[in-house]
Design a protein around this nucleic acid. Structure first.
Length: 403
RNA sequence: GGGCAGGUACCCAAGCGGCCAAAGGGGGCAGACUGUAAAUCUGCUGGCUUUGCCUUCGAAGGUUCGAAUCCUUCCCUGCCCA
């Protein structure tokens, strides 16, 4: 790597970050000229990564590209505690089996962004399992209850009379202890991690270590434009989702959200896009295309855009298999609501009936509102029907070949 | 340990013997509008081939022709006091 000034490297590192504590400490460590140990802790309670996670991961990748090492800590132990960060409710505690399974898919997904060659993967149960009660007391004695209650999610829950379990106080301690064990140089997290990150600094000091440099990244707002992106709120875009799904979801964000998404999720420049493309829809398509490209490649990005236009702008039927689910039924008559339920186009026959009543259901582009409607499936492959529920769900129904 | 207040559908929250599948709001879904959207307006929002039936109001029992509503026990939560 060509020599780059410390200042310039710091500028690259802190791009997009909300805070960096402290820049002087970071400069000092960079000056040492060794690969820094950058900590990433992951709580494998929700194994699927979404775009929100990629904000921090991309930053870690940037560190790797500068020659630093990422220590990826699987919080297999802490997952069993349940992190309360940024939540008004306690996270469910997971069983060992669940955690193990989750950790596996999680790791696989993380390497879509991180460089495996510069990543060390460890599990924090390695040191937290054998910890003795005595050790725990020593850890706990370094923090006061008042300090704990500074943290917003504890404070607001406490004020609102929402229960806080004692074990939740142990979570930040465990996370901080991880930093001590791996002697982290740097830790990065979302702004919701600020408290935990700061606490790790204090504990490191108490244990005679140099406190880690910490950097926080903005939380990505979810598709609803209000809450932070999270799987449990259903406002997320998973990085393993099919291309058309990612594209479609991104197209559904409000215009106001676009600049932030462009900034946090791509290397594109929003102002540049705006001056080149003009129309908000074009900009959004560029954003959606870029993100699809990142996880599925150029071809998928092009196809997603094309099919999206066909399906929604022109209300046609896209060619791509992903966009249209293929359904095979035995020849004969089928009660439509039952078909919709069986094919996942409606959650129940009751819902299917409702959708029909509301004019959301079309067969071959003809609206069907009669709840008693019957779908006739003829023999052979000729007679295929297009069933459309709302605008997003499209299925092509044909006869199941008789075996 | 004592006192008090609570636990209602995805979330918040009304209901306090029948008119309750349960008000209202949020969220979600659909339709209209549009530039994909957002905003706005309208409708829907437990299940079941549905003028009816079945399951639901922390759990289990009980009273009653009839219970989310009354009684008993239990479980859970918050507040105050110790």
């Amino acid at each position: 790597m060509p020599r780059e000034s410390i200042d310039s490297r710091i500028a690259r590192i802190r791009k997009g970050a909300v805070s960096l504590e402290t820049e002087a400490e970071l400069a000092a460590r960079l000056r040492e000229g060794r690969p820094l140990r950058v900590k990433l802790g992951a709580d494998p309670s929700a194994p699927d990564l979404h775009l929100g996670h990629t904000v921090v991961l991309s930053k870690l990748r940037a560190f790797q590209d500068m020659g630093h090492e990422v220590v990826f800590i699987i919080g297999d132990f802490t997952a069993r505690i349940g992190d309360p960060s940024g939540r008004s409710k306690t996270r469910p505690q997971l069983s060992r089996d669940e955690v193990e399974r989750n950790a596996e898919t999680y790791t696989a997904q993380v390497f879509r962004i991180l460089d495996p060659g510069r990543t060390r993967v460890v599990s924090n149960s390695a040191w937290l399992d054998p910890l003795r009660f005595e050790d725990l007391i020593r850890l706990a004695s370094t923090v006061t209850v008042a300090q704990m209650l500074q943290r917003d999610d504890y404070a607001s829950r406490y004020a609102a009379g929402v229960p806080i379990s004692l074990h939740e106080f142990l979570y930040p301690l465990a996370q901080a202890y991880d930093s001590i064990r791996i002697e982290a140089d740097v830790e990065i997290g979302g702004t919701d991690q600020t408290f935990n990150l700061l606490l790790a600094r204090e504990l490191q000091r108490a244990f005679g270590q140099r406190p880690q440099v910490i950097m926080t990244m903005p939380l990505l707002v979810g598709l609803d434009g209000v809450e932070k992106m999270s799987k449990s709120l259903g406002n997320h875009v998973g990085i393993t989702e099919p291309a058309f799904e990612i594209f479609g979801k991104l197209m559904s964000i409000s215009d106001d959200l676009m600049p932030r998404y462009v900034e946090l999720l791509t290397d594109l420049d929003f102002d540049d896009l705006r001056s080149r493309l003009g129309h908000p829809m074009e900009i959004k398509m560029a954003l959606a295309g870029e993100i699809v490209r990142r996880f599925h490649g150029d071809e998928a990005a092009r196809s997603a855009r094309e099919n999206f236009t066909i399906a929604y702008s022109r209300k046609g039927i896209p060619d791509d298999g992903d966009w249209v689910r293929e359904i095979a039924l035995p020849p004969g008559s089928h009660w439509l609501p039952q078909v919709m339920k069986d094919c996942g186009l409606a959650a129940s026959t009751s819902e299917a009936r409702r959708l029909m009543r509301q004019g959301a259901v079309r067969i071959d582009d003809v609206k069907v509102t009669d709840e008693q409607a019957v779908l006739e499936i003829g023999e052979g492959d000729r007679d295929r029907k297009i069933l459309r529920v709302g605008r997003k769900k499209i299925a092509r129904i044909g006869a199941r070949p008789t075996a």
